[in-house]
């Protein structure tokens, strides 16, 4: 299959990345060459193969549902590009 420009713009929308109109052509070319490479996998019959979801022979550990840290609001807000005293600030969402 091949990806056309409209499809790429749609995927970019899903990924929340604005794409410069001037770059769409070269992006389309690059992504198509990558997909052509990826699609070598279609040579293989995998009907009877179980998908590998974890490389470890162990299941994910769970821990007790209790608070182990906290009271670090300042640390958490420290790197925010825009904040007031207690909150992250974003552009207006609700009119």
């Amino acid at each position: 299959m091949s990806l056309d420009k409209e499809k790429i713009k749609h995927v970019a929308k899903l990924a929340r990345i604005s794409v410069d109109e001037a770059k769409v052509d070269s992006l389309t070319k690059d992504l198509n060459s990558i997909f052509k490479f990826i699609e070598q996998l279609n040579e293989l019959n995998t009907d009877k193969v179980e998908p590998l979801t974890s490389i470890l022979n162990q299941s994910l550990r769970s821990r007790k549902d209790e608070i182990i840290d906290g009271k670090i609001r300042e640390k958490i807000l420290k790197n925010s590009p825009k904040k007031n005293e207690e909150f992250f600030v974003v552009p207006k969402v609700v009119e």
């Binding site: 590009p81 992250f88 552009p91």
Partner: peptide
Amino acid sequence: VRYGYRSQKGKDLIEM
């Protein structure tokens, strides 16, 4: 929003 670079362009949250 929480850390890192933020663009100053865009008229709403999605565009930001």
